[in-house]
Nucleic acid binder design. Sequence first.
RNA 1: GGAGAAAUGGCCGAGAGGUCGAAGGCACCGCCCUGCUAAGGCGGCAUACGGGGUAACCUGUAUCGAGGGUUCGAAUCCCUCUUUCUCCGCCA
Length: 428
Amino acid sequence: MLDIQLLRTDLAQVAARLADRKFKLDAEAFAALENDRKSLQTRMQELQAQRNASSKAIGDAKRKGEDVTAIMAEVASLGDELKAAEAAFAELQKNLDALMLSMPNVAHESVPVGNDESANVEVRRVGTPREFDFAVRDHVDIGEPHGLDAETGAKLSGARFTVLRNDIARLHRALAQFMLDTHTGSHGYTEMYTPYIVNDNVLFGTGQLPKFAEDMFKVQKGGDEVGPDQYLISTSEISLTNTVRETLLKAEDLPMRMTAHSPCFRSEAGSYGRDTRGMIRQHQFDKVEMVQIVHPEKSFDALEEMVGHAEAILQKLELPYRVITLCTGDMGFSATKTYDLEVWLPAQNTYREISSCSNCGDFQARRMMTRFKDENGKNQYVHTLNGSGLAVGRTLVAVLENYQNADGSITIPTVLRPWFGGRTTIGG
RNA sequence: GGAGAAAUGGCCGAGAGGUCGAAGGCACCGCCCUGCUAAGGCGGCAUACGGGGUAACCUGUAUCGAGGGUUCGAAUCCCUCUUUCUCCGCCA
């Protein structure tokens, strides 16, 4: 959520920056709403003050044993007017809140302005794509003989679900554990295990709701118990970041670094026909997530560091990749700046997204009410960051394709061999 | 699933229809005293929003798990929900 003060004082500028993000803020409508809010609030507060004064007078009079019928009569007429004013204010506040919740974060000034991915900026390339002296196969063809089974996945759950068995399942697990161990062992993250089903208010906190409900899986309890609306997490950023919701942290608690390995569930509404083959785009995939809760002045340094943490995984796996700065039009809702990591996929002869690292500034903190007491004893919103470190399913794809051999076997990356009892290949 | 208890400020914990934004303690900050790996005294110390002031600050309103209700007036009474704890049952 944006700072409403900023909207009041700098409406035109905020509207312009939101326009870069393809959000049309009707400045006039907002200003009108703000105006109404002000007059309604003032009126309501006046009436409340009157009521409080009268009630106090009644109390005083009663204690002295004086007659209170006169004051009682005076205050009687107040009730209805107050109720009406309060109702009108609540209604308006609701509309204002809904509008505020629907606005994306504004981009940091260092973010390139642009409409779509064509305006993204490549920051660097690391590693050189391998030269193959045989016909490159894609991960489906390479993986199938060793246990990648889309057909059974579809039988169980439909399109975009895959069953892994044997060495492929093991490789998948090894990847996740390697990532987790690296982040906890070398990058200072605390390992976490969190719920995969969360209440709707949690989704408001990180920004998936109210706007992106169609991307989520909504779940329902058996029986006829009614509780809050609940959803499967689309990323453990949601549960990790929200662990600090509605809390007042101490300055020395910061920075907090959390990591978790979890499945992610995405409806992929609107992506029909895209990446239908293989494991690139699934309804369920695993991801090792990094989340940081940091001091507001340190969040952009933390973002660079976090990108480095994600890169370290790719480097240790010896996978070629590039780093991209997303432009304003391509960034996620809550982000103020985002770097994507794209891994080289030989079969597609291109780089594909495998990690996304974002600084959300105070946008999520404001929605979650997460603050810390700063050096001067003032409560300030923290800044939140999240990044994939990495998407496990896509990393599996990248390993299969980049490590494939002419005979259909797969060389196991050196760092993963401990999970294979020292074996060096799958198949072959 | 059954029975009961509870939810108050960063934390602990009083409160029981008006004088309560809320005693007391801890933590924290300032000053003083004293001096040594301690202690004592005094003062300050919730949040959000509105209005005023360059500002320190002043002022109004709201907030005692959440939402409704009763009342001139609710932390205190009533209803619903959520969460936690205890006992019983069931259970990976």
